[in-house]
Design a protein around this nucleic acid. Sequence first.
DNA 1: GAGTGGTCTAGACCACGAG
DNA 2: TCGTGGTCTAGACCACTCA
Lengths: 247, 247
Amino acid sequence: MTQPAPSRRHAIAEDLRNQIAKGHLKASERLPSEASLAAHYGVSTPTLRNALALLQGEGLVEKIHGSGNFVRHPLRRVTYLGGVAEPTAWSTFFAPLRVTTRTTNIEAHSHLPTLLNVPPRSPLTEVLYIAHEGRAPHSLARIYVPRDLVSADAPAATPSPTPMAARLADPRPPLAEVQERLSVRLPTQEEAATLRINASLAVLALTGVATDATGRVVEAAFLVLPADRADALFTTRLNPEERSPKA
Amino acid sequence: MTQPAPSRRHAIAEDLRNQIAKGHLKASERLPSEASLAAHYGVSTPTLRNALALLQGEGLVEKIHGSGNFVRHPLRRVTYLGGVAEPTAWSTFFAPLRVTTRTTNIEAHSHLPTLLNVPPRSPLTEVLYIAHEGRAPHSLARIYVPRDLVSADAPAATPSPTPMAARLADPRPPLAEVQERLSVRLPTQEEAATLRINASLAVLALTGVATDATGRVVEAAFLVLPADRADALFTTRLNPEERSPKA
DNA sequence: GAGTGGTCTAGACCACGAG
DNA sequence: TCGTGGTCTAGACCACTCA
């Protein structure tokens, strides 16, 4: 009986969930205003907003400030394929998305020197990727590469047509290891604003570090995937007989 | 300038963060009551609670109903090692934790038949693991194994001393593949109650499926890791020359 | 029983989006 | 400008913990 009494907001959320499931509320349809919903359920607006926050956390409802609450499209989740050190993993992830990039030259600071194993203030190239699904921002990635590794064949001003494919494509010494750390955290205010998500909704943060055969860190990648839009899949084969599944 | 005005709760959270960082508030120390904190900052109780919710989401503060708000221990995060199909991965994860288990015989239902690739209502053994850090619940796992695979050498009533080591230890045909899917979601009410976490704080959910060489699904595991207590680390080596890192 | 956090109310005012 | 959601107030009452 670890079953806490279903509070009002859970009951309301459950009712709206059912209405969405039954099709009474259709995808991309606007819900009644929060004020009228609150009146309909006989609760105060904060309580009704708490109910909507539950649905928002489940990815069923999207709030747009000034416009209203909308039923989200039937949960099109994008899967990030980890444990695969090939560009295909990234292009698969971003396949249905439109990606914009912004490249900046910076100096290593805060946690970057440690992560990349370079001296503080050493030159890095930062590439910011923002993936869009339709017009709405979907997810973002920041990738840091030591400047000398990137300037040779990838001038900062000309990202490749499929920008994410640049990852892992350039190192001259072969890649030896990719470490990917996943954690759950709240988005920074900047991330929340960029992704147009509620700052109280968690994101899946992936920190990837690629090391080449000489032990040098070739790249650090920071992916920010809103909880309702993406998950990550890692496949480990024990007998490495079947490599690189084409699909 | 995607910098939304720092609201009151952010300002309060920032102040408390600093006090924790500077040591004015020490680990496992109780904060003043919410009412007095609200008075001190000149805000209403809901606003102060929102500020605490931010810190809670960062793992800096732990709320205990009826007792107070406490500064959490210096963020002792447990790392789940994925991409390693050996019992060591699990024992490492749960090493600093005390684990209790409960074994139940059930029939496959809802999503289990699909995941395990068995007929509906076929016999399964469910093992529920609850990991504790000190007296507080830490994380939980549910593991499902086809009954015929478990009854042979692991009677339901006698879990091994390090129960998680039982995973991947018994299959007669060698394991061929482990797939681990990670997603972020809110805990169910039951999970929140069991883990004593706020139902509005996200968890990292890991779904692992192990397949043996014959293609049979040997086991499905569901881990629930509260966002503030754990992350997951996957290491991929490209030249499989160095296997099974002992450490 | 005293004190704590958990939930909720019935408003107020501000910020954003679209016409 | 108007309707929307975002934030906040100043309480109320309930549920839990601990002495």
